[in-house]
Computed example of a mutant assay.
Amino acid sequence: MDKPYKIPESVLVVIHTADLQVLLIERADRPGYWQSVTGSLDAPDEPLLTTATRELFEETGIVADGEKIVLRDWQLSNIYEIYPVWRHRYAPGVTQNTEHVFSVEVPRDIPILLSPREHVNHVWLPYLEAADKCFSPSNAEAVLLLPRQAAARH
């Protein structure tokens, strides 16, 4: 059975601590490509919060329980060109993806359990260094917006 095409709508989850240390994870299929948690909707009607919660757990083992670990929807979307190397995952002719930005504040000592088929390493960095290390421009921009988003929450 052929694998279904990816839906060109996804979430980006910036994981950070109270002092704006950002968790980045390194892609297994592209060594040196560092990013925040990302993932596409499983179904066109899947709620974005459900996608973000699922991807956060699948990629890091972090459970957003809605009490201690709370995902925040930034109400911000980016439309970007899908990298040619990954376009085969989408239906023919699909070249753009809509990405919805979330964040989650976690304790610095939270255990990180990577999915080895997706990611091979992780690192905590101050947000400016993290932004510089992100391979995706929209991911870097989200990390740079983190101080403003964090301040708006308090």
Rank of each mutant, 00 (worst) to 15 (best):
W34G: 03
V70L: 09
H16I: 06
P126T: 02
F135M: 07
H100Y: 12
G61M: 08
A150S: 14
S103G: 09
L145C: 12
G39K: 13
P44H: 08
A64S: 13
D65K: 13
K133V: 00
L48K: 03
A131R: 10
E81M: 06
R148V: 11
I110D: 00
E99R: 07
A140I: 06
A91T: 12
T53V: 00
M1H: 07
W74M: 09
A18P: 05
L56E: 06
R27W: 11
S103L: 05
Y80Q: 09
H88A: 12
Y5S: 11
P31L: 14
I69H: 07
N97Q: 11
L144Q: 06
I112K: 10
L128W: 02
S77M: 05
E26V: 06
P147V: 10
E67K: 10
E9A: 12
D2M: 15
V104S: 06
H119M: 08
P126D: 11
E118I: 01
N78H: 15
K133L: 13
I7Q: 04
F102G: 11
P111H: 06
E9V: 06
L41R: 15
W124H: 01
A142M: 02
L24M: 02
Q149V: 13
A142Q: 03
A52D: 01
K3Y: 11
I7T: 04
G61I: 12
L49D: 13
R54I: 03
N121E: 03
A18R: 14
I112W: 11
E67I: 14
A131L: 04
I15L: 08
T95D: 07
Y80V: 06
G93I: 01
F102P: 15
Y80S: 15
